[in-house]
């Protein structure tokens, strides 16, 4: 039902306490960004499991964005650092899938950084545009 020309598809996993709220703030301040992003709410970036990221990529998402609190600000102490470790490892193995590391991105964006959120999405979108479609996506084009 989505129109095909909506550009890169990004699945975003955003922490409740910071980036999800930052994304809300981007809306409240009416900052425009590309329409291809879909946001999934997590309580903490530390809840991000690599299988969620892999699942999104294998399902054809062009990119996966994970948003957490700045180091030291995690509501649950160190969830964001756990996420950072996990995502760093994941990015190392992405190549074996034939995917660019840059398709997975972890960013610290606080609840007050709506502008940074919008800017991040815009930039990521144009990076993904130049990377081209996720090769796995074609497998679903019937």
């Amino acid at each position: 039902m989505d129109n095909n020309n909506s550009g890169p598809r990004v699945v975003a996993f955003l922490c409740h306490w910071c980036t999800y709220t930052g994304a809300d703030l981007a809306g409240t301040t009416r900052l425009e960004y590309p329409v291809g992003i879909r946001i999934i709410h997590l309580m903490c970036s530390g809840a991000i499991d690599v299988v969620y990221v892999l699942k999104a990529l294998l399902d054809g998402a062009d990119g996966v964005l994970i948003g957490g609190c700045h180091p030291g600000d995690c509501h649950y102490q160190t969830g964001n650092l756990k996420a950072r470790r996990r995502i760093a490892l994941l990015r190392n193995i992405l190549q074996t899938l034939g995917l660019e590391q840059e398709r997975v991105r972890l960013r610290w964006i606080s609840a007050s950084e709506g502008r940074l959120f919008a800017e991040t999405v815009r930039q990521y979108n144009s990076n993904l545009e130049s990377m081209g479609k996720n090769p796995f996506a074609d497998e679903w084009d019937v």
Binding site: D2, N3, V11, R38, I40, Y52
Partner: peptide, 21 residues
């Protein structure tokens, strides 16, 4: 699992969200 945000649930949502069309 987190109650009411289980992996099964998230997988369904990821399915919905990951595909361009």
């Amino acid at each position: 699992e987190l109650i009411n945000s289980t992996t099964k649930q998230l997988f369904r949502v990821i399915d919905d969200f990951a595909r361009r069309a």
